[in-house]
Design a protein around this nucleic acid. Structure first.
Lengths: 331, 331
DNA sequence: TTGTAGGCGTTATCAG
DNA sequence: CTGATAACGCCTACAA
């Protein structure tokens, strides 16, 4: 490994001088000539700074961790992508970790910071509830969470980015109502973002004096959507539109409708949530809600960097991301 | 940050003794009592070893980099997952990087090793051609590539894992032939794995004295599959089966067939390659080839670890992964 | 303008 | 059995 010492020897200067020359101070205390000599030595030797040593000395690793429940869940890769590209712009590395959404694993990975491995966190913390905030506060590590809604808490370390799932689902429901649908059912789970979406649906329906038809499921796969719709379609007064709280379930809904020999959207309209890649590959293509996860990733990193670059604590930041109803052929 | 010094003070020993106690030598030179005192101090103080400092000292970071072209490409997440879970078992961290498949970015990220940030690499190197091997050799960093076929080269640092794309596609084609198809077309690109698959198709067809019908495309999206099939379907003697070199294109093929008011599989059978999540969400579900990417990820990490754990160089390793024809409703 | 000295937290090699 | 001591590569005073 080529070190500053090697460079120093070659340039005929001392090692600290090399260090100085490399950081290229604009007010440069060093004379041009010296800097040039050092630089050409760096060049010919192929010196690369050892970032571990830098980190040990400066106490910052230029690395952040990105925690997500599961990289194979189609919602996350583009968030990760957004995080990585933003981080790269700041010359930061990203360690991506699958937490399985479990609290213990989330807490476990937060220890990466205590081991001096990362400077901060970005990601989706399902497990860490508001009562863990104390723990987090005393770790004194900046964290930016990806949340389903605006949470009001006090903290000097926990920032949030969020998309307003409530109004997104409210708007999606309203969109169907405006299309003339009266009997609109929803299939949704109770956890995390899905619960918030459920409320949005309810708000839209009751706001128009329509009766909410809610079908609660435990898990959120295509299969769960399929099963739930089977039940829904059995009833003779079945709805003319079904909303699923995510695209995977919506695709299951579509299959059930197909098998019942009903047409989409003529007999029953279907809408989903998330705009996963598959949503435009199914037939008919699925109306859904885009959350611009890549931008959320960017946003999250920007908030994190604001903290990392600032020497002083400052109160919690919350940034809202865009969403958009994507109208396709299923409605 | 709690350091060994703090622990030492609390346990009434010197700092190096703490270091000794922690690594729990089985032949333990240290008396039980001392170890216990140290351990309880570790416990109460919540000491976590600073891995940067360890890395600086030992010259190994316990981190590997996973290079892939694009995390949003549905093929990769489960490979990454496999890599991460295997690495975790070895107590290694994984830094995942998107290279865009560009040679310059791949070479750039290989510098992570020179910066002392990672111990080795795993992933898909599209850009690094065989002529870069010299460069790689003199970096003296272990790399395990995910390759589309068995490549015979000499190296002490480059290992490969691969799935035999040639025989997989040959088998898939044979599968269709056995179903009675005579006129079977393929839509494929020329690059990387697709080229190998193309050869497999050709081998199967000529082996049965059937005329290959090859449609070469430049890119490999759903849209490209759609366009290519439009052309194919125009001809009156159109094939009774279409193979696409990946699932995304196959799904495009299915759409084109739908729009031509033909039935799948009665009029035309369709098969893809990769078993991406969407392939079982489309209607009808798509017959395709599973490559068990998660296992490949595991395998790759295992090969890498063999090198990292061994103090001596040894000749190149090549490991073959499984594949399987997944028969679904499109054939 | 440059070099010397000290230290970041750890491990390894010695004496004692 | 244990405690100094040095070293990993780098950065930051401060002194020359």
């Amino acid at each position: 490994m080529v070190t500053q010492k090697d460079v120093a020897r070659m340039a005929g200067v001392s090692q600290p001088t090399v260090s100085l020359a490399l950081k290229g101070n604009e007010g440069s205390v060093l004379p041009r000539a010296t800097v040039n000599r050092v630089m050409s030595a760096v060049e010919t030797l192929g010196y690369k700074p050892n970032r571990l040593a830098q980190a040990l000395r400066t106490n910052q690793t230029n690395t952040i961790a990105c925690l997500i429940p599961d990289i194979t869940n189609p919602f996350y890769p583009s968030f990760v992508r957004g995080v990585q590209s933003a981080a790269e712009a700041y010359a930061y590395d990203v360690i991506t970790v699958n937490t399985e959404g479990s609290r213990s694993r989330e807490l476990h990975y937060l220890e990466l910071a205590l081991q001096g491995r990362v400077d901060g966190f970005v990601g989706s913390f399902f497990g860490i509830s508001d009562q863990d905030i104390q723990t987090v506060e005393q770790m004194e590590v900046p964290i930016v969470r990806l949340e389903p809604s605006h949470k009001k808490i006090d903290s000097f370390w926990l920032d949030d980015v969020f998309v307003d799932n409530f109004s997104a689902m409210k708007k999606l429901t309203q969109f169907l109502i405006n299309k003339g649908h009266i009997k609109i059912a929803i299939i949704s789970g109770r956890g995390g973002p899905q619960n918030v979406r459920l409320s949005g649906y309810k708000a839209a329906m009751t706001g128009e004096n329509l009766e909410p038809r809610m079908h609660i499921v435990d898990k959120f796969t295509e299969f769960d959507g399929y099963n739930a719709s089977k039940a829904i379609l059995k009833v003779s007064t079945h709805p003319t539109a079904i909303i699923a709280a995510n695209d995977l379930m919506a695709i299951g809904v579509m299959r059930a409708i197909n098998e019942a020999n009903l047409r989409i959207p003529e007999d029953i309209a279907v809408a989903g949530f998330d705009n996963i890649p598959a949503s435009q590959l199914v037939y008919p293509t699925l109306t859904t809600v885009e959350r611009y996860q890549d931008r959320l990733g960017n946003l999250a990193v920007n908030l994190l960097m604001a903290r990392l670059k600032s020497k002083e604590k400052f109160p919690r930041q919350v940034a809202e991301g865009d969403y958009k109803i994507i109208e396709r052929n299923s409605t």
